[in-house]
Amino acid sequence: MGDLKKGKLTHRTVWEKIADKLRKRSLWMLHYCTGCGAVELPPTMTSRFDMERFGIVPYVTPRQADILLVTGYLSVKTLKRLILVYEQMQSPKWVIGFGSCTINGGMYWNSYATIKQLDNYLPVDLYIAGCMPRPEAIIRGFNRLIEDIDNGSAQNWKKYYLNYEFYKKNQEYVFGEVNTNLDIKSDIKRFKIK
């Protein structure tokens, strides 16, 4: 996936380090459910497992969300919407692939309508394996993401801007040309991605 120099991407100024310290405890998750994995989210959100104790709250609009949790299989039709949603989210943003469907197709390994490797189309920070992953696994995944944000290694959203051609090519291969109105150049400038 391109030749990224990790040292440059993960370099942070002091202010960014402080900002990451604050960010990691107020992650808002986009409440967008694809596939069947979303049934594990209600127990994770509500009092038994209570993900709000980590500062993670489900939220309804992509503009205010930080985490895109892809819960389960993605048909090509859904993938198109997911990419529109992802590009509307404000950086920094993190993608979690949830369930084995996003990793290698899972039980849809033989399907004509679902994609099999999510990281060809979106930069994935973290995969949670399982079919389905239990709420404990989701909580552990979130904790891992919090750790990664804290130590500055969760920078995959920058890869989307730097390797945009790679992702765009894969996206167009499965569903044809779509104008998503993403202004790559000005975004790279704004977020100072080098």
Partner: peptide, 15 residues
Amino acid sequence: DFITRKYSIEFYGER
């Protein structure tokens, strides 16, 4: 006569 396996590997790849 549509071979799903072939189509899925061609379009969505295989890990």
